[in-house]
Write a protein that binds this DNA or RNA. Structure first.
Length: 480
RNA sequence: GGCGCAUUAGUCUAGUUGGCCUAGGACGCCGCCCUCUCAAGGCGGAGAUCGCGGGUUCGAAUCCCGCAUGCGCUACCA
């Protein structure tokens, strides 16, 4: 069997990490079994859906490397891939159910229903729809329809129960009497979510529905719909939610968890994918770093955990640093460069600046966890320094002036201005002055980079060049 | 209120059919080494009576029952 999986976000906002993981698992499964991965936009809620959100979601998916075989911008046999425009399909299905006596019109007004719900809840009863419109006589029903009273279409939930095997959690049973006659078509004629997904998944021949845990309770309704439409339901798998440390669902309160924000901070998509994959799934008892290929070859729903995963940004950060360390010089420089541009340190097309960055890359690699970290580490290479306040105290030490003066002299006389020579000279100087390396080098570091923390001093100096090093040392002395 | 799902260290998890678990790996944390700062790296360490209470069994994190807690659904939202 050719598997077909889909990711069906509703474009009411950006893509967050939970959605990204759902998309990833679907994609992984599709790739693993040489099936299709479909992107479908669930914009039935027109008032909350935006075009920007659709674009942003697609951009984030592409950044993660989750390409879709069918969907917006790539097309496919089941066009269109957003629910707006598929109304006819939903209506046809609904009308078929109505004709078959599996659905019925409901004339109750929303306000009235809400009121009844409140009452039921207050009295401790289940707030289920009481089916009052089901008992309307045929004549009465006709009369109301003819007089133009707006009505919704409700699904007539049959008796019995629904049992299905969730690929993650096993067998689950719901009693139909706990399910109310839910609305299929709103009184304005639009389809509700439960009708739309079923019709779409059916039409798009989806074989596996892999989605968040929050849809588990919707599943029996959808299975009932499949049966009523005379179709076989797909396989279902419900992923545990991703929650914050306090155990609550991730939300804005817990910081920015949009995929885009991680991209902007300088996380690598491959690290993101690796980390996301491990949030609820594991290969074995010890493997943590896995490339895309390994993921594809090994991913399976059987090894998906059923308990909620806590979003642990510390671990993501560590993982990102692992991926950064594995990058080659040029590759890393190319990825870092745009961050320098954005920080205003260099111009987009500054080839010379890129070459400088490329040479600095080996000094950076083990010192940054996200690409954005590079900015403050290499700033001194592209900008005159402004000595930071807490670095100032280093210069206030009484030995500083002597160190800077001697260093300046030594460097001036240096034949070759390269890291090894600089190091030899400065170490000799330190010894001459009876100073520990740290005492001798910190003032120089501050003078050169403006900060107490920097890439290795001697290499940094070589990169900067003798001229500018001497200038900075002189300037630091003046400021004393 | 009803229904459903979940419960191994601060965190991600391993633990597929009960014994090889004196519960394994990773992040984080602590200490030492290395060292021009910061990292990276090396070595070592603390941290879980497997939510609680019963039961089945020679033997349970693993099976059964109950309870508690958390989360989800219970919309003419998705």
């Amino acid at each position: 069997m050719v598997v077909r999986l889909r990711f069906a976000p509703s474009p009411t906002g950006y893509l967050h990490v939970g959605g990204a993981r759902t998309a990833l698992y679907n994609w992984l499964l599709a790739r693993r079994h040489q099936g299709s991965f479909i992107l479908r936009i669930e914009d039935t809620d027109i008032s909350r859906s935006t075009e920007e959100a659709i674009q942003a979601i697609m951009e984030d998916l592409r950044w993660l490397g989750l390409d879709w075989d069918e969907g917006p911008e790539v097309g496919g046999r089941h066009f269109p891939y957003r629910q707006t425009g598929r109304y006819a399909l939903y209506r046809d299905a609904a009308m078929r159910l109505l004709r078959d006596g599996k659905a019925y019109p409901c004339f109750c007004e929303p306000e009235e229903l809400a009121e009844r719900r409140r009452e039921a809840l207050k009295e401790g009863r289940s707030p289920m729809y009481d089916r009052r419109c089901l008992s309307l006589s045929e004549a009465e029903r006709e009369a109301r329809i003819r007089s133009g009273i707006p009505y919704a279409l409700r699904f007539l939930v049959p008796e019995g129960e629904v049992t299905f095997t969730d690929l993650v959690r096993g067998e689950i049973t719901f009693r139909n009497r706990d399910i109310e006659d839910f609305v299929l078509l709103r009184s304005d004629g639009s389809a509700t979510y439960n009708l739309a997904v079923v019709v779409d998944d059916l039409d798009m021949e989806i074989t596996h529905v892999v989605r968040g845990d929050d849809h588990l309770s919707n599943t029996p309704k959808q299975i009932l719909l499949y049966r009523a439409l005379g179709a076989e339901p797909p396989a279902f798998a419900h992923l545990p939610m991703i929650v914050a440390r306090d155990g609550r669902p991730l939300s804005k309160r817990h910081g920015d968890v949009s995929v885009g924000s991680f991209r902007e901070k300088g996380y690598l998509p491959e690290a993101m994918v690796n980390f996301l994959a491990l949030l609820g799934w594991s290969l074995d008892d010890s493997t943590t770093i896995m490339d895309r290929r390994t993921l594809i070859e090994n991913f399976s729903l059987e090894r998906v955990s059923s308990k909620p995963a806590v979003w642990d940004e510390d671990k993501l950060l560590w993982m990102n640093s692992q991926y950064i360390m594995a990058l080659g010089d040029r590759e890393l420089a190319e990825r870092v460069f745009p961050f320098l541009v954005r920080a205003g340190l260099v111009k987009d097309d500054d080839q010379k600046a890129f070459e400088v960055l490329l040479k600095a890359t080996p000094l950076l690699r083990e010192r940054i966890k996200v690409l954005g970290d590079a900015v403050h580490l290499v700033r001194f290479l592209f900008q005159e320094v402004d000595i930071e306040d807490d670095a100032r105290t280093v210069l206030e030490d009484e030995v500083s002036e002597r160190v800077l003066r001697e260093a300046g002299k030594g460097l001036l006389e240096l034949k070759e201005f390269t890291a090894p020579h600089i190091e030899t000279t400065l170490r000799e100087m330190a010894e001459r002055l009876g100073l520990k390396p740290r005492q001798a080098f910190q003032p120089i570091r501050v003078a050169i980079t403006g900060r107490k923390v920097s890439p290795p001093l001697f290499e940094s100096m070589e990169l900067l060049g003798r001229e500018r090093c001497l200038q900075r040392i002189a300037r630091a002395m003046e400021s004393l």
